[in-house]
Computed example of a mutant assay.
Amino acid sequence: MKKKRSHRRKQSSEVNLGFQIAPMIDVVFVILLFFMVKAGDIQVENAHITKLPGTEATAEAVSMPDEISVMIDDDGQVSLNEDPVDDPQSKDMPALTSALYALKQSSEATQSKVLVTIYANELAEYQRVVDVLDSLTRAKISDVTFQAGAPE
C-alpha cells in the first residue's frame, strides 16, 4: 500500500525568505545605466560672440537696388510697374522681355542691382507665371521674389 503524503502548506509566518539584495542591485544598475546613457546625450553649449548689425557711417554713397514689379492678373494680362505689356495670349512676351532687358542693361551701367517681384493673383494660371519666369531668364535677371495677390 502506498503512503499518503500530506502536503501541508506552511504558514506565512513560518517562511523566512531573508533579505534579497540581488533584485535591488539589478534595479540600481539599470537606473545607473539609464543616467549614464542620458548624460552622453547632453550637448555642451558654447558661447558665440555675435556682432549685431547697427548703424555705421560710410565714406561713399550706397545705391539702393531698382525694384521692378510684374503683376499677373486672373485673365493672363501681365503688367510691368502697373503698365500692361503684351497680349494675354502671347506666350513669348517679346515686349516684356525687351523692357526687362533694357532695365537690366541700365542697371548694369549704373552698377546697381535689379530686383523683380512677381505679384500673381490667386486665380492666375501657373503657365502664365512660367512664361514670365522664362522672360526674366531671357533678360538675364536672376533676383526674383514672389508674392501672392496684389501689391500693397
Rank of each mutant, 00 (worst) to 15 (best):
V132R: 03
L17D: 09
L32C: 05
Q43S: 12
A57L: 14
D87R: 13
I21M: 14
V44C: 02
V129Q: 13
E45G: 05
I68S: 04
G149F: 04
I118H: 00
M71I: 10
V44G: 10
K2V: 09
M1H: 12
F146D: 03
T58Y: 13
A109G: 10
S12Q: 10
E14D: 13
P65H: 14
V78N: 00
G54Y: 05
G149Y: 02
G54A: 08
E45S: 14
L100A: 00
V27N: 08
E122I: 09
T117F: 00
K4P: 04
D66H: 01
L80N: 00
V44D: 09
M71V: 13
E122W: 11
F19E: 14
F146N: 07
M1G: 11
H48N: 07
S63G: 03
K91N: 04
V116P: 00
K4G: 05
M24E: 12
R9A: 13
F35I: 10
S98D: 14
G76M: 04
E108I: 14
A95I: 07
D143K: 05
V116R: 01
V85G: 02
R138W: 09
D74F: 05
G40P: 04
G76I: 03
E152T: 10
T117H: 01
G40K: 01
V70D: 04
I141K: 03
G18A: 15
Q43P: 07
Q89I: 02
T110F: 04
V27R: 14
M93F: 06
S98C: 05
S107I: 02
P84K: 11
T58V: 06
Y126E: 13
F29A: 14
Q89F: 14
K2D: 07
A99T: 06
S13R: 14
D73K: 15
T97G: 09
L133K: 14
Q105T: 15
Y119M: 00
D86A: 06
T110K: 12
A99K: 06
K91D: 07
M93E: 06
T137N: 08
A47F: 08
L80G: 01
E67G: 05
N81T: 01
E45F: 11
A22F: 04
I118K: 00
M93C: 01
I42K: 10
K91T: 12
V129S: 09
G149W: 00
S142L: 07
Q105H: 13
E82P: 03
E108A: 14
L32Q: 07
